[in-house]
């Protein structure tokens, strides 16, 4: 069996497992699954930049928010129908990725992290500043007309799950192909040794810019999907924790693996869900998890599996 076939089978198996989970679990957990899949798309977008290209961004919430507001604001203010507004959301994420990338890629390492952090902070403050339109921290509810695609109302539990699953499946299969493609392998080469990749004649800066644009597009897609499926747009999704979460998910699940982001979101979702039932200070779990992960398992869960199964994408 070739590696490519194995990869596709693995991804199809993951998707089938999600369907089985949805059919067998009680409604509350099934609803959580939709949320987990949308957040996993966000994590996959982050992983493309962090796990595969080796660039650690601390400001990805701005791309998520760009998608969310790109979709939500056009639907809310201009009455644009769901699909074009959704496409605009993805475009907004990609465009922001391109602009931020063009500036931030002039720096590297720690400076790159701080620059992305600051751009995200500026984006968050901008959302607050235009509070008349964005309703700031309070946020707004997406009009119900903008949540109907092809005559199907996506606010229903089953419809929402189906839409989330289709989006997630597309993204998972596409990234599975992408990371095995020429571009994906070159990005990994940049992560492993940028100087050497440059010496081999690759334009590393251009490739990194492509990676950050794709990552922004995927994060924007996730943000737009979140607003589309759950009907709420708010500034808290642009704040610092939403830049830290994808890093945590990817680290926990396994950076540089295709299924790692889903695993990470899954675990962290239920960890936080359980913790917030016990205490107000549920973010404590996030802190402890980050410290323990960096100390003891920098490759994450999928990284540990990958040691046994080296063909894992």
């Amino acid at each position: 069996m070739t590696d490519r076939l194995r990869t596709d089978l693995l991804h199809l198996g993951v998707i089938a497992a999600l369907v089985v989970l949805f059919l067998t679990l009680p409604t509350y957990y099934a609803g959580n699954l939709s949320r987990i899949m949308v957040l996993a798309i966000y994590a996959i977008g982050y992983n493309l930049l962090f796990g595969y290209t080796g660039l650690l961004s601390l400001g990805h919430a701005m791309f998520f928010a760009a998608g969310m507001y790109g979709y939500g604001l056009t639907a809310q203010l201009a009455g644009v129908p769901a699909l074009p507004a959704f496409a605009l959301g993805i475009l907004a994420g990609a465009a922001l990725g391109l602009v931020v990338g063009a500036l931030a890629l002039r720096t590297a390492g720690v400076a790159f992290m701080i620059v992305t952090l600051m751009f995200a902070q500026a984006a968050y403050l901008t959302i607050l500043h235009f509070g008349t339109y964005t309703r700031g921290d309070e946020g707004f509810v997406v009009p119900s007309e903008a949540r109907i695609v092809f005559g199907i109302d996506l606010s229903g539990e089953t419809e929402r799950f189906a839409a989330a699953l289709i989006l997630f499946a597309l993204v998972l299969l596409a990234t599975g192909r992408l990371v095995r493609s020429r571009l994906g392998r070159t990005l990994v080469a940049i992560r492993e040794n940028e100087e050497r990749t440059r010496m081999l004649g690759y334009d590393a800066t251009r490739l990194k810019l492509i990676a950050i644009t794709l990552s922004g597009a995927l994060s924007g897609l996730a943000g737009a999907a979140y607003a589309l499926l759950f009907g709420y747009v708010g500034a808290s999704f642009a704040a610092v924790p939403y830049s830290i979460f994808p890093l945590l998910w990817v680290l926990l699940g396994g950076a540089g693996t295709t299924i790692g982001p889903l695993i990470g979101v899954f675990f962290m979702f239920y960890l936080i869900d359980t913790a917030s039932g016990i205490t107000l200070a549920y973010l404590l779990i996030v802190g402890v998890a980050l410290v323990l992960l960096t100390l003891f398992a920098p490759q994450g869960i999928a990284g540990l599996i990958k040691r046994r199964l080296p063909w894992l994408p």
Binding site: L56, L283, L284, V286, T294
Partner: peptide, 17 residues
């Protein structure tokens, strides 16, 4: 950086508790 982000949440949330 990742570890100190973790320490940040630990300090902040322990104070909250």
């Amino acid at each position: 950086i990742v570890a100190t982000i973790g320490l940040l949440y630990i300090a902040q949330q322990t104070t909250l508790m």
